[in-house]
Design a protein around this nucleic acid. Sequence first.
RNA 1: GCGAGAGUGGCGGAAUGGUAGACGCUACAGACUUAAAAUCUGUUGUCCGACAGGGCGUGUGGGUUCGAGUCCCAUCUCUCGCACCA
Length: 875
Amino acid sequence: MITTDRYNPHELEPKWQRYWNQIGLLKAREGQGGAKKAYILVMFPYPSGDLHMGHLKNYTMGDVIARYRTQQGYAVLHPFGWDAFGLPAENAALKGGVDPSKWTFGNIAQSKDSLNQMGILYDWSREVTTCTPEYYKWNQWIFLKMYEKGLAYRKKSYVNWDPVEQSVLANEQVIDGRGWRSGALVEKRELEQWYLKITDYAERLLTGLDDLNWPEKVKAMQRAWIGKSQGAEFDFAVKGSEAKIRVYSTRPDTIFGATFMVLAPEHPLVAELTTPDKRAEVEAYITAARKKSEIERQADAKEKTGVWLGTHAVNPANGKEIPIWIADYVPYGYGTGAIMAVPGQDQRDWDFAKQFGLDIVRTVQPPVEFTGEAFDEDGPAINSGFLDGLNMAEAKQKVIAWMEEQGIGEGKINFRLRDWLISRQRYWGTPFPIIHCDSCGIVPVPYEQLPVTLPTLKDVDDIRPKGKSPLAAHPEFYECECPSCGGMARRDTDTMDTFIDSSWYYLRYADAHNEELPFAPEKANFWQPVDLYIGGVEHAILHLLYSRFFTKFLSDIGMVNYDEPFKGLFTQGMVQGWTDVGEVELEGDTIRFKTADRRSKLDILETLTVLEAKKSGAELREQGGATHFWKAATMSKSLGNGVMVGPFVKEQGADIARVTILFAAPPENEMIWTEEGVQGSWRFLNRVHRMVAEQLVELKAQGELHNPATLESADKALWQKLNQTIKKVGDDTENLRFNTAIAALMELINAMADYRRENAVSPVYRRAVENYIQLLAPFAPHLAEDLWHEFHESSVFMSGWPTVDEGALVTDSFELVVQVNGKVRGKVTVSAKATEAEVKAAALEVGNVKAHLEGKEVVKEIYVPKKLLNIVVKG
RNA sequence: GCGAGAGUGGCGGAAUGGUAGACGCUACAGACUUAAAAUCUGUUGUCCGACAGGGCGUGUGGGUUCGAGUCCCAUCUCUCGCACCA
């Protein structure tokens, strides 16, 4: 019941939130709605406590779609959970001595509160928290299944070591040579660790991308990461040795131009191929290379380093002896860790050859105008014996056939993707269900003994990083009986990468409380695949690739009948807030910062000109007699520029926040949260509120709208505008174009206000008001529900989605645009029934058109029915 | 260097090859008010013009077309991602 003329969100919002809980709105029910199901998923977060508007954008978008689909009568699954294992909980424990579990659940409660206050509805009965044994038991189960299939294995190898986290990292977690979380320079260490054989799925992970409704950018990133290349693998004989050096090349056609060879410093043949007089130099180089960080290795690609081993290989194509070098520009992990260097066709080899005075032979003829160094494009082969004259494709084919005939090599496809290293030397994660037994070796924990539970932390000091697993300090955890021989044995004390947790959580939602299996296949199959997955683009490779891998594996063992988890993906833009970067002083045209903290976080130079500042979107503001530098920046805890959900909702309202987020910009763009934007949302919702509140009595007194087809003039126009809006809001919501959907609603309320200036409340107006509330409901659910209950007993979300009266979209007159030579010269309203000749006649009557035709010869007329007439004249 | 995408008012942004700038913000003017806020009305790309109307206008240069923000070619700038992977 509307008790006041004022729109009072903080009074009505809690009321309807309680109501939705009561009626179980958005509780997922398999089979409801016939065959129509919608699985709407947002990437589950790490539970970090209080939320700000930046956190809320994707949840709001998901909620809009979930509510929209509910209104349409779909069976909707809109679940939520917590990616709860991970470092911050350990850090909090180290800092404050809090138990990681307590800390995590405290944060979850706070975050949940923020979500509820925003009116974001989930089926909380399916909530998933990854740090609970009920969940991670199934990480262990899946791991054991992979172990059985040979997809989980142990390997000793050079791994990425994060010296700050004191743990190893997967390749995907090393960004620009630094740990993705700590930002520390990653070192190489040789360790034995658990790996998952994601490389077995490389081809399927690549081809599966084609049919996905994902942003092209994300697909491109995954393709690049998988990095498929076609070429050949073949042997070079070593002079005076039995050893053969195997190389991989995508350009085997250039083999005649191979004038030297390069091995990666870690290559196992290096020692054997080094002559005694070179040994000291070579060993020094290897030691130096190992110490070098990735950053240093990449620092200046032009500046090549390397050492000749003192020996020669034989080019199998022309029998020439070519020197063997080692250099760190050849990565050991890719291909065979050795290359044939063809400086004529490869710039890196060219640079290396120039640096060390090695031979350069072109084997592809560049065009005459070519002025570059190495020529890596197509052209006729030269200096290449039996390949001469052939183009690249022909030469490749021929040389591979020749290699196979000679028995020295064959065609080969290579991937850049490496196996996934999943061991972590951390406490707060899933223990490996593996036992090491001196007599039996590696023994998997039997399924019936799962879960292997994480021991309670006794001493905070255990998790202080010291390079070995904290669980090794817990004999009560690792001491065990070997399931195979019954003797004394030791559990694996590492924990799993937290990305394991997020690789299948979307399947657990389908059956969150199953105690027999990770999920029942038939339940997963009902909901899968996810129809719309919303999250940040920062997960374009890591999480999305791992999840696809897991789904393909689970599909292979018959757990699901889909092998792509996320049919639709949407990557939302960030929310920025105005940020006080710090106090500055002005010297003429130059701004100089007095503080560095936020300035350096935002990568802003210490001094810059006023013009540069303006160009970057910054503003100078006077406050308390000092000048401060303000700039929009992504909301974050560390910058302190987040608009917090709790206080905002209390003072302004959840619907206002939702509309502000949705209307400000297209959802894939970043948006800047501003006070003006909030004002605009308030004005809009207030108008909607008044539209009902101020004429409630008249609205309720109206009868049903019976025969829309007989409407006249203003009524007819309103009916048409209403139906156009129903169509537009529906289409836009389908396509996640919330900003234009809300713009259409604003247009309609403008049209309705115009109608009321000249007309009394009428049945068609009442229908428009009711449909308006239904269209508004996904975006501003509290207000819509409140207004809806003025007219109806049940929820607006159970009221259906308004259908478009196609007949209303057909007009009986239209505005014809008249152009002369493509320029608009007039407009005239014409009956829809008018013939083309009548339309033209009407157009020629327009005064301004007449003037432009004066004394000219009409050459041509183009008529676009019901829209436009273009008269082409000459003279 | 390679890949993906984007350049439109003072700002965020709209425009199935067919009226460029919807909708909102800002600003200005007016109404209401003792006053302010809120609200309502109007104006708001730019230049000429009192109006009618006209010229110019979607990064730049070409092209296709009766007609181009949209399609094609070239070019510049920006954002994001990848980057010694042969």
